[in-house]
Design a protein around this nucleic acid. Structure first.
Lengths: 253, 253
DNA sequence: TAGTGGTCTAGACCACTGG
DNA sequence: CAGTGGTCTAGACCACTAT
């Protein structure tokens, strides 16, 4: 007996989970239909569906309306490394994100959703060390790996820095991108500060990132600092958890 | 109309979500009972329960058998910083984990679950740069913040390093803990490498960490390196997402 | 059109919590 | 004990996918 006295839906979930982990159902494979499972186990269809839902919440199974329930295959993670701002990527013209996508046979690209002047939310003001509610530039982007949206990214820059610069345009008019513009204005990245947490997506995020149930997001808040410890840019990444990860490599100080 | 043509369970979920976010139901507050909701909205109890379940999956609500459904309050995060291995914590005798707990009025402690000699799993061998299946020491711990288990931690050390050392004992016989022992043997931490990802907990992890549904975990794999880039220790953290986060602060190289 | 999941109903009984 | 969630049943109809 796997466990003692599990109710039918959980018992079925336990059996299916074991079969998945044992490889009886391979990644990508379709599970028996809920009606079939119900008949085989002598339970109501609702109860079989409940078992499948439990597995979906664990991230083991994806449910597809009209098609069936499928074993979720492990996705290769697109790892954003702590060296992603390193000058070494400059000349190649390739960003770490694009490199990672390529490594996996995908096509990376990003899309500008909006560029606006807004009043800073409190957490942005805190990170930037400016007054709460002061003007900041907000740029919103989506990063795609082939047809999957993987990151939802929002960048904030103090208005005093952004004003009159190429940052206001949709297409960044600089060979080295957004950070090229900062450097031209004298803001050279010396340190970065990043906070990481995880949570379930809001319904809105789930829609934007096309997330099935059972997939959390990583929320990363990145701050760029000059050698004088001046914060000149904050970026918030919302990353789909099943396709992304982080990699840090740093000295102990 | 919030959306068009939502089915009853989702419609109720949408309404409750709005009330929660608006503060009509405060954090910690009890929602109306499922039977009450069902009566008020003219739907079956199952349907009302389904709405609540949706909110639980999003992490907004915690369901408590026999008591009721409650709005989940934001937990203060225990942030493990990248400086947690910094020598500056040495003399104080306080670890960053304990400091964070204290800051929140909690009592931090940890418990040793097991200390064993095993054959290295593949990922451990890869991180340590040793042969797959070679002997390693495995130490398993749980970290508590007052009565909540927050991290499940497993450390691996090449057997050649661990053999005959204090690492084999349950209680580490060194004033500076496990890393004190490494240093005495000539392994001084010069760099760290950490990979971070998120996922839903396995049922086992959910039980160990006492996780309600709608709470993902952070999985961090930490590797300690000497100045010569020799990896001498790997640790895997499984952290409950609603109570923990990470904080990195590092130079751009 | 047939097959699959999405969802609902109405009623039932069990299991847990708290007085 | 009463109140609450946990779960099940049996049947129904809808919505989506594929042929």
């Amino acid at each position: 007996m796997t466990t003692k006295e599990e109710p039918p839906s959980r018992a079925l979930a336990t059996q299916l989970r074991a079969k998945i982990q044992r490889g009886d159902y391979a990644p990508g494979e379709k599970l028996p239909s809920e009606r079939t499972l119900a008949a085989e186990y002598g339970i109501a269809r609702n109860t079989a569906a409940e078992a499948v839902r439990l597995l979906a919440e664990e991230g083991l199974v994806t449910r597809q309306h009209g098609k069936g329930n499928f074993v979720r295959g492990e996705q290769a993670l697109i790892r954003l490394g702590s060296d992603r701002y390193s000058p070494k990527y400059r000349e190649s013209g390739l960003s770490p994100f694009l490199l990672e996508c390529e490594k996996q046979g995908k096509v990376g690209r990003f899309e500008v959703l909006s560029v606006e002047k807004i009043r800073s939310p409190e957490w942005v003001a805190d990170e930037l060390g400016v007054e709460n509610g002061s003007n900041v530039l907000e740029r919103e982007n989506v990063f795609w790996a082939s047809d999957d949206p993987v990151y939802r990214v929002t960048t904030y820059v103090p208005w005093g820095i952004a004003k009159g610069s190429g940052l206001l345009r949709d297409e960044i008019p600089h060979k080295y991108g957004i950070h090229g513009i900062f450097e031209d204005k004298g803001y050279v990245m010396a340190r970065i500060r990043e906070s990481v947490k995880t949570r379930m997506p809001t319904p809105e995020e789930a829609e934007h990132l096309q997330l099935p149930s059972g997939v959390p997001v990583l929320e990363v808040v990145h701050t760029s600092l000059t050698a004088e410890q001046t914060a000149y840019e904050v970026t918030r990444f919302v990353m789909r958890g099943d396709m992304s990860g982080l990699l840090y490599n740093m000295p102990v100080e």
